[in-house]
Design a protein around this nucleic acid. Structure first.
Length: 432
RNA sequence: GUGGAUGUAGCUCAGAUGGUUAGAGCACCAGAUUGUGGCUCUGGGGGUCGUGGGUUCAAAUCCCAUCUUCCACCCCA
């Protein structure tokens, strides 16, 4: 296609046929959130850049090399949101959500932007579904938040693993960090290039390097691995206990260190089993210092976010489908051209009664109209013809059996509502 | 950001060593006697071979650049 304009790299068009899956997942998410007592919140898709510099951390990959940052007309630096937690923590403070009863439980869904190198399941504009809870540091909420994420996946029949870890708090994490930093200082030349970078930015990540030697060196450096302070250790132990009580299986993964600076204590990640490229479907954790950092009262927080595109990808991999809700109920066919006006009127009447109805608008032959009707998936066809119309009737054809009956025009709507409409369609989940 | 692949009709792909009007299947559209779909048959439309340069008498086929997608890494959703 010469001279055509394409969508920007790393973005996608969600086309009819695909978008129904999106809506299904989105609406299911809204529903489970309501069941768990969350209210929806919407924040801007762009924010002042400082929000992410401070909130996410200016040494993180997200801020260092993945942000869509630009100057507006008054030279303020804005950034497209790369994630949802920092903006919501900002709103929590700015809109004084802490003045109501605690905890505050909110959910969100929408586009996020990261200037990454695109790949299957990794886009520059992608979509997240997430929740945040402010004002509770109880291990029970940690467990419930993780359990809710797994519950959501399980409702779809997805088989996913919950990996969980505690990254400690502002008291004990720096100790661990310092141990690693100091312990590796004399052996820097033995680390791989990536780990050399990690050593300055986030030494904890060295524990998770692909290269065995880096891992071994890191483990030697922290020989006494039990770095969690007693409070954090208790918190973690209780969280796991509640997960057990909820019958949620998990994998304790000491190497799980999430990349965003704000995480404290509980960190978890939901992974698709097997070796796929983008295995991480979602992740979350606790961020007890974030609200305070934005100038709010000291408030613990915890949340998670799932990637909609990855969720859909895993659904496809695991052979899961969603109910089809896009079909028509009725396709209207005209036998003669001069019935067009009559047909349009009848269509409107059907639609006014909540029946999904459509017809051909390209002047096709009757035969071709029937063909279109077949493709539309409509279980019923109404045929408008001079012969029947003379008797005040129309033909009603059942497309599955091929059987056809004559129905008085006056009874058509009631007839369709009683047979086709309810029984042939799965009740639409979107309607609720 | 690093390394490596890829790009031919709407889709999936053929098109050895460069050579006349670029093909198939599926999809799409239209027919197969009077007003009737899904099967079958017949016919048809549709591609400046991702884009832009270059080499050559001649390029979808060779070279360069660029874009896209994909894979690995970094990291993450």
């Amino acid at each position: 296609m010469p001279n055509s304009i394409n969508r920007p790299r790393g973005t996608i068009d969600v086309l009819p046929g695909e978008v129904e899956k999106w809506r299904y997942v989105e609406e299911s998410f809204r529903r489970i959130c309501r069941e768990y007592g969350y209210a929806e919140i919407r924040t801007p898709v762009f924010e002042y850049t400082e929000l992410f510099d401070r909130g996410v951390g200016d040494t993180t990959d997200i801020v260092e090399k993945e942000m869509y940052t630009f100057l507006d007309r008054s030279e303020r630096s804005l950034s497209l949101r790369p994630e949802g937690t920092a903006p919501i923590a900002r709103a929590y403070v700015e809109d004084k959500l802490f003045s109501g009863p605690l905890p505050v439980k909110v959910y969100y869904l929408g586009p996020m932007f990261r200037y990454d190198r695109p790949q299957a399941g990794r886009y520059r504009q992608f979509h997240q579904l997430g929740v945040e809870v402010f004002g509770s540091c109880a291990p029970a909420i940690d467990a419930e938040v993780a359990a809710m994420a797994m519950d959501f996946c399980r409702r779809f029949g997805l088989k996913l693993d919950l990996h969980i870890n505690s990254v400690g708090c502002s008291a004990c994490r720096p100790v661990m960090r310092e141990r690693l930093y100091a312990g590796l200082k004399t052996r820097l030349e033995d680390l791989c290039n990536d780990c050399y970078m990690r050593w300055t930015k986030n030494p904890l990540r060295i524990l998770d390097c692909k290269i065995k030697r880096c891992r071994e060196m890191a483990e030697e450096a922290v020989a006494g691995f039990n770095f969690l302070c007693p409070e954090c250790a208790d918190h973690f132990r209780e969280t796991l206990g509640y997960l057990d009580a909820l019958n949620v299986a998990y994998i304790v993964d000491p190497c799980l260190v999430r990349g965003l600076d704000y995480y404290t204590r509980t960190a978890f990640e939901i992974m698709a089993p097997g070796a796929g490229a983008q295995r991480s479907v979602g992740g979350g954790g606790r961020y007890d210092g974030l609200v305070e950092m934005f100038g709010g009262p000291p408030t613990p927080g915890i949340g998670y976010a799932m990637g909609l595109e990855r969720f859909l990808l895993v659904m496809q991999e695991q052979g899961l489908t969603v109910p089809d809700s896009g079909r028509l109920d009725v396709y209207l066919v005209t036998a003669e051209k001069d019935l067009e006006g009559k047909a349009l009127g009848l269509l409107q009447e059907l639609r006014a009664n909540g029946i999904r109805a459509d017809k051909d608008y390209t002047g096709r032959s009757m035969k071709a109209q029937l063909k279109q009707a077949g493709k539309s998936g409509a279980p019923y066809v109404v045929i408008l013809g001079g012969d029947e119309l003379g008797k005040g009737r129309v033909a009603l054809k059942d497309m599955l059996s091929g059987r056809q009956t004559e129905v008085p025009l006056a009874d058509l709507t009631a007839r369709l509502l009683s047979q086709g409409h309810d029984s042939k369609h799965e009740p639409s989940l979107l309607a609720r």
